[in-house]
Nucleic acid binder design. Structure first.
Lengths: 238, 238
DNA sequence: TTTGGGGTAACTGTATACAAATCCACGACC
DNA sequence: GGTCGTGGATTTGTATACAGTTACCCCAAA
């Protein structure tokens, strides 16, 4: 990957966005470990831009929770946010609440769109079941399918505000999911059943049930993940 | 008010924050009308700082939804976000979901804290009832009490992430509430009863009920507000 | 009177120089 | 040997100059 050229080639007003996306990618995929210090000048040099667009990207990452300021001093020293069990639980509950609202709206969608969505979700979940059933499941594929399942509801049914919020928070859950997906692969079958509940509720237009089903799915996921984290240990704390 | 001196006196690393807070205050209180253009140079001059901290403040306001970019062009021209019925409904539902999660946690609080919170909420709601019962209610006082009622749950029971999210979204609901509070004063009694439901659920430690009660409260508030907006007309659109 | 085009003014994006504040290491003194 | 202080290096915060783009205004022509 050659970030230098990407950022340079970017048109004027996209530079902060490009830097933001690249950094986020690095954080989510763990290439920037929790606790790492982010130095403006280093980043600027690395992407071949000045500190100005870098500042924009960092501020956004900070506001969205990907990076935090070192606790000690008044002058802010941004570091990659740590991954802890408590944070995971809170984060998953929040994402669950937001996606639950989407599901609520999805269940109230007018008829042609709703059936289409249900069909789509059913297909994805079936694929997910098949992928999980194989002897050595492809973790990346599992994650992608699960991701798409949740994403579709939001894309179709959420309003602009909800979409914005979701897109800024969801990737942070991705940090945890990507790290622990190998440990979580064994817990797929309850998740599959929960997805079926969601689909059924949306199909019959039962908004309250759809909402509750999504909340359950995420709350259970938080519990499963929390247990795994406690077993394996936190990252970025000691 | 003399913003010049405020921003100047602020210590180095607080300047963007001060500008942010002042601008947000102006927007929330309607002194900056929906659709107004925000020009970096003007703001910088007004607060007697350079464009750099102003940019930080604007970026934050944009990300939180207080300002939007003029629809047409690639270069961003920030304007104060319009107020519409649809947006109000979506916004209130989101805030409701977040506060519902807080209430859920509040109902699971360990014992000394929970009783204290319940007592506090009961007092506030009683004051609210008294204030609403007087012949010519003080709208500002009504709003403050209602605000405090909702705020306490979050302060006591929410985790750091939830608090952060809430503090960035809630003031946007405030924009609507402050504008329409005079029209909404007549609808206080259902809201009072809904508050009582919340208090009762937390008191008996019924987390699910507390969550549902908060969601109902906000969803109904969204409906009441939506009707008022449709009657009175949107702001910032025509 | 309205519409189209060109030119100018205004505003934002970027880069960079400078100032202030913190951290780190080294050394002196107890 | 340990601890505290001081000086330099590092890094962020701020201001400002410059470049590129957009919008607006004015004037001419239909």
């Amino acid at each position: 990957m050659t970030p230098r050229r990407l950022a340079r080639a970017a048109t004027r007003s996209d530079r902060p966005k490009v830097v933001y996306e690249q950094l986020r990618e690095l954080i989510v995929h763990g290439r920037l470990a929790p606790g790492s210090r982010l130095v403006e000048t280093d980043i600027a040099e690395r992407f071949a831009v000045s500190r100005t667009p870098v500042r924009g990207a960092l501020q956004r990452l900070r506001q969205e929770g990907y990076i935090v300021d070192s606790p000690s001093m008044r002058q802010s020293r941004p570091t990659v946010a740590p991954l802890t069990g408590d944070d995971a639980r809170e984060l998953f509950d929040i994402v669950g609440q937001l996606e639950a609202l989407s599901a609520y709206n999805a269940a109230e969608l007018p008829e042609p769109a709703r059936t289409a969505l249900v069909a789509e979700l059913a297909t994805i979940n079936a694929d997910l079941g098949k992928a999980a059933g194989t002897p050595r499941p492809d973790h990346n594929r599992l994650w992608n399918l699960d991701e798409r399942f949740h994403e579709r509801c939001v894309e179709v049914a959420a309003g602009p505000r909800l979409k914005l919020l979701h897109s800024s928070i969801k990737p942070q859950a991705e940090r945890y999911e990507r790290l622990y997906v190998s440990y979580l692969a064994g817990y797929m079958s309850p998740s599959l059943a929960e997805h079926d509940d969601i689909i059924a509720a949306i199909r019959r237009g039962d908004a309250a049930a759809a909402k509750a089903a999504v909340e359950r799915n995420w709350h259970n996921a938080a519990e499963r993940l929390g247990q795994v984290i406690e077993r394996v240990g936190d990252w970025g704390r000691w």
